[in-house]
């Protein structure tokens, strides 16, 4: 049997922009995925506070959502974002790694529905949450 998790990990870590952000796939399988993004000065949105730009958090969440779709047992392979909404709850604490967790909670022949959250080391309140829909495509 094909190891989908291994394929997905390889695929995600080979994405040029995922490498540029330092994304690491920490868990994947059954429509769920976890990805971390280490703190980097290059990703700062306001140099006066050192807080990571919301756009970088968006990119990490989008990648994590895509990985969750690919790992769903009913997904034939590839996917692309149709739409993604992010709500920003608070600024991420400077210096801390951001951990994203996504769940593909429903999938049809054509569309996958995904929810995700982004946390820093304070797991009491998410930094951001995301909800979106993705295409379902063959590899």
């Amino acid at each position: 049997m094909v190891d989908k998790a291994a394929i997905a990990r390889q695929f995600i870590e080979a994405i040029p922009h995922a490498r540029a952000l330092g994304l690491k796939l920490t868990s994947i399988g059954n429509g769920e995925a976890g990805i971390t993004m280490p703190y980097s000065k290059e990703l700062v949105g306001d140099p006066r506070t050192g807080v990571i730009h919301g756009g970088a958090v968006f990119a990490a969440l989008d990648t994590c959502c895509g990985a969750a779709v690919m790992s769903h047992p009913s997904a034939p392979g590839g996917t692309a974002t149709i739409d993604l909404r992010i709500d920003y709850m608070r600024a991420a604490t400077p210096g801390q790694t951001i951990t994203t967790q996504a769940t593909c909670y429903h999938i049809t022949r054509n569309v996958a529905f995904v929810r995700a959250t982004a946390m820093d080391e304070d797991e009491g309140l998410p930094v951001a949450t995301a909800a979106g829909s993705f295409t379902v495509e063959g590899l």
Partner: peptide, 24 residues
């Protein structure tokens, strides 16, 4: 730039890059 690519097979810009560009 090459580092903005999200799908190396097509190739296409990363959706997160597009979102970040729009937000910026």
């Amino acid at each position: 730039d090459q580092k903005l690519i999200g799908n190396p097979l097509l190739p296409a810009l990363h959706g997160g890059v597009t979102a970040a560009f729009l937000e910026v």
